[in-house]
């Protein structure tokens, strides 16, 4: 079954097209990497699918329905710069936001919500820090709590925007193991990623994008020097690095 359908999607930023004519059919139970150079529209693609940006042309469907009506089944982990880390909020309050879709309009979190928050905090090994204000966490810990929030949301689709930036090696492994667990449960995970060295280990499928969709398919088939060259164009340094990796 297709989880996400994107048909002929075009988004313009300040009158310039950011992404153009993107077509994607994404099936459930896979880990998909979105790869491309800076400014290629990776985050734009995610945000447009989520309805966070106005769409010029095209259509997005999630679970075969309008985006708006199925958004609650999507968990999104934005880039870290997006947050005000001085905000007066602690770890368990951030994670509790994942339960908001399940709480009625004037309701309060119940015992079950609190139990789930504790459970996911344990899962990401952050239960010790539940009362800590978020400024006082390391980069890796900050990323863990946003993953915990996504887990608490019990969604079917997970969107992660550069989750491994500013994160220690140990956390990267821990996060990735959790992502694999999600996949085993049949969830769909889309990750914007820029470090080409891990692409083959991490992703089942790959979206190569540079404003237009260069390629979408099994990582083995798509992660080729020729396609990467087309994706990265003139950016030779990255390309050289990537080609070297493939030779090795």
């Amino acid at each position: 079954m297709n989880v996400i359908n994107v048909k002929n999607l075009t988004v313009t930023y300040n009158k310039k097209p950011a992404i153009k004519g993107i077509n994607l059919d994404i099936s459930e139970g896979s880990i998909i990497g979105i790869v491309g150079p800076n400014g290629a529209g990776k985050s734009t693609l995610l945000k447009a699918i989520l309805g966070l940006l106005p769409i010029d042309t095209g259509e997005v469907k999630i679970f075969g329905k309008e985006v708006k009506s199925s958004l609650k089944r999507v968990a999104y982990i934005p880039q870290k710069e997006q947050f005000d880390w001085d905000f007066p909020i602690n770890v368990s309050e951030v994670v509790m936001m994942g339960r908001y879709p399940y709480i009625s309009f004037f309701g309060r979190p119940d015992a079950n919500d609190k139990e789930i928050v504790n459970k996911v905090l344990k899962k990401v090994e952050m239960d010790k820090y539940s009362q800590t204000q978020i400024r006082n966490l390391s980069g890796g810990q900050q990323q863990r709590i946003f993953l915990a929030r996504a887990l608490a949301q019990e969604s079917d689709i997970y969107f992660l925007d550069e989750p491994f930036v500013g994160v220690d090696a140990k956390t990267e492994v821990a996060i990735f193991n959790l992502i694999k667990e999600l996949k085993a449960e049949g969830k769909t995970i889309m990750i914007v990623h820029h470090d080409l060295s891990k692409v083959e280990d991490y992703f089942d499928k790959l979206i190569l994008i540079n404003q237009i969709l260069i390629a979408f398919g099994e990582t083995k088939k798509v992660f080729t020097p020729e396609l990467l060259h087309r994706t990265y164009g003139g950016q030779l340094t990255i390309l050289q690095k990537a080609e070297q990796l493939i030779v090795n």
């Binding site: 989520l50 958004l71 609650k72 968990a75 999104y76 905000f87 951030v94 936001m97 908001y100 004037f106």
Partner: peptide, 21 residues
């Protein structure tokens, strides 16, 4: 009454949008 709505839109408007606030 609107403690949660004010909190989530202040801290993370993207999340608010996704969960329909």
């Amino acid at each position: 009454l609107f403690y949660r709505q004010l909190l989530v839109t202040s801290f993370d408007p993207t999340m608010a949008h996704i969960i329909g606030i």
